Each structure stands twice: as structure tokens, then as C-alpha cells.
Computed example of a mutant assay.
Amino acid sequence: MTVRVDVEPALLQWAVDRAGWDAETAERRAPKLGAWMAGDVQPTLKQLESFAQATHAPFGLLFLSEPPVENIPIPDMRTIGNARLRRPSADLLDTIYLCQSRQDWYHGWAQEIGLDEVAFVGSATTQTAPHLVAAQIRDVLHFDLQGRSAFASWEEALRRLIDRIEGIGVLVMVSGIVGSNSHRKLAPEEFRGFALADPYAPLIFVNGADTKAAQIFTLIHELAHLSLGSSALSDAAMTATSGPEEELWCNQVAAEVLVPLTALRADYRGTVAEGELERLARQYRVSTLVVLRRIHDAGFLTRDVYWKHFTEERARVIKLLAGRRSNEGGGNYYHTQPLRLSRRFAQAVLNSTLEGSTTYRDAYKLLGTKKQSTFENLADELGVA
């Protein structure tokens, strides 16, 4: 006997909107959706389960009388003025929930083995001058201008920054997908990153689908949020001139960490030609986009002129990076997974499991794997015996 289910059309539409499907995608992924919503026929239980899985909607919620209100579980700093943002996607929500779950585990583990609280978290307020916090960050991370000369490029600077931020006790996760699902790609247009404050397990997530140029700025921006002891979902847009006070303050800190204005004013040669931008980018080990922003901050470019050059340079950088990616292939899973998980977090889970404190079942869930061979190979990659 076929069991059919009575579902409110508004719930079906909620699931479609939450998944970010357009009309064409809905027709392709759920051909009978129109008939269900029109009331011409009811879905079978199996069809509804498949629909929930395809839209990443919690199956039980489809039996409600009206769509639930899903609030983002951390302060949303993307709101500008009174502008209303669209409903958060399933991909964004699931990414935050996954990181919160990992953070909860790490918090308990850190307390269990007697780790100290991370002193950097909550060490500043928005009343603290951004240049003072920036100087503190450069000092803590050993990221002063002289030390950067050891990095071959700003791409390498990003990788080393991640290592150094993890070195002070912060979990850094950089990924362009939800968990380990390569079919669920994150949209930089929705968010660039977020910070989850915690005394034992502060966490930064950077949207790896964004350009590397944006990622290095987002990384420091989210670190600034942690210095305030606050969680936040961020735009972290270098071009932002309005928005929540905390978000603008974090932008100022990030920009000053990467390119101190005092140094730039002495180094700048008075032109925004490509050669000059590249020279300064090499000197500071940042992207040309960050350089352009700081030239504007230093008062050398008006807002309109800056925006014109930024738009042109961003298009050039995206084209250049796209060409590089097309020649790189898919990459090695065991090289990328520690970056997605946080090397510090993954090593903790692996060690705890091998010591018998965490079950393999829980470890597989935390690490996003289903195979013992993957677990073992990841342990080898991270040097966990």
C-alpha cells in the first residue's frame, strides 16, 4: 500500500527557497513539485524523504503547519542599515551548525586535558584604537613587515598566517563546501566568513570559495572579532564604508595589520599603475586589492577613483586566479582536508580517538569521513601516531 503525505504547499516552497533553487532547478530536481503544491496529488512518504534530502531540509519540519523561522545562531554583521537580508541558505546554516558542533567537542577536550584559556579572546573593545590592536596582532603572530620577507608571496603569507593563528590556540577552518560534500558549494556572495568566540575553542571559518585575495583579509577580520570576544557572521568587505560599528572596526584592524598606514605613506610612489600595485603587494605580502584599499585609506585616492580602480583590479585578479586554478587540478584530499577541518582540531580528534577517549564513530562524524582507511591516512598526513 502506497502511503501519501499531506504537506502544506508553503512548507514545500520554504524548502525550495532554503536550498536556493530557481524554477529550472526545482523542475529538474523535483518534477512533481508543481503538482504537489497545486494539490493535484500528494507526495508519497518516500518521495517526500527524497525531496527533503535533495533540499537539505530537516524531514520532520516538513510536517509543520507553517514554515519555521530559522534565525542565524550568531550575530549577523552583514546587515547594512535597515536593509533586509534574504533567508539564510541551508548551506550557510549547516556550516555554522557543523562548526559549532566541532567547537563544542574541542572545548570539552581542551578543558579535559587542562589547556589554558586563549588570552587573546576578549582582549580589546571597539573603543581600543584599531592601530593598537593591529600592532598586538602583528606581534602575537610574528607578522611584522620585516618577518614577511621570508614568504615568497601573499598566497604563502595566507598559509603561514593560518598556521600562526592556530599556534595561539584559534581553530581556523577554510572551506568552499559544506562539510565534506563537494556538491554543496558555499557562495561568497552570501558570506565571507564567521567567528565563533569561546575561551577554550575560538574558531574562525573562512569561505574558501572566495578569492585568496579576499580570504587573507577575512582571516584577520575574523581574528579581530575574536579579540572583542564576540561571535559574528561577516561580509568582511574591504570596500565597506557603512554598517555595524563592530564590523567597520574589524575592517580597520585587518587593513592596519596587513598594510600599516605609516609604512605605506613612506613607500607609496604616487601611482596606481599595475607595476606599482604589484611592487607594494610583494613588499607587504598582500594582494593588490588590499594595497589599493590602503592607498585610499591613506588619502591618496578619492572614493570614486578608488572604486573605479578596485573594480578593474578585482576583475583582473579573478581572471588571473581562475587561470591558475584551471591548471592545478582537484588537489590532494589529504592536503586540503586539514585546512577544511583545522589542523589543530583534526590532530586533537585523532589523538583523542587513538588514546581511547573518543569513539571512532564520533571521530568519523567530526572529521567528515566514513572509512577507517581515510582516518588512518589523515593521521599519517598530520603526523599523529
Rank of each mutant, 00 (worst) to 15 (best):
A35I: 02
Q136P: 03
I177A: 03
A254M: 01
C99L: 15
Q103C: 09
L62C: 06
A322Q: 14
G356K: 06
E24L: 14
E117T: 15
G108L: 06
G383R: 06
E190G: 05
L11Y: 01
S65N: 13
R159C: 04
E355R: 09
A273H: 15
K365M: 02
L11A: 12
I113K: 15
H309M: 07
A10N: 07
F191H: 05
H131Y: 07
A385V: 07
G108S: 09
A266M: 12
V272I: 15
R269D: 09
F205T: 04
V349Q: 11
A52L: 09
Q100F: 02
H142R: 14
A15T: 01
A322S: 11
G147E: 12
S89D: 10
L258K: 05
L301C: 08
P260F: 15
Q347D: 00
Q136L: 13
G356V: 05
R87Q: 12
D76L: 10
L98Y: 01
T374C: 04
T125N: 09
V41S: 03
L350K: 06
A379N: 08
L233P: 02
V178N: 03
L161P: 02
D198K: 01
L264I: 01
L158T: 04
S175G: 04
V178G: 09
H107M: 09
G176M: 11
F59I: 01
A152N: 12
M37Y: 06
F345H: 07
W249V: 09
W36P: 04
K371I: 00
R159F: 05
A232Y: 12
S357I: 01
G108M: 10
D22Y: 03
A237N: 10
N327A: 08
A232R: 12
E156G: 08
D17G: 00
R343W: 08
T44P: 01
S101E: 13
Q347K: 11
W36N: 05
D144V: 00
E27F: 00
A209Q: 13
F345N: 02
Q103N: 08
V170Q: 01
E8R: 13
A236F: 03
G179W: 11
F310P: 00
A213M: 10
G330E: 12
N377A: 08
F205N: 12
D94A: 08
W14S: 14
E166N: 06
D198C: 11
L62H: 12
A119E: 07
S175L: 13
P260Y: 15
H309G: 03
D210F: 00
L85K: 07
A322P: 00
T336D: 02
E155Q: 11
G60F: 05
L258T: 02
G270I: 10
V3S: 07
V133F: 04
R164Y: 06
V140P: 00
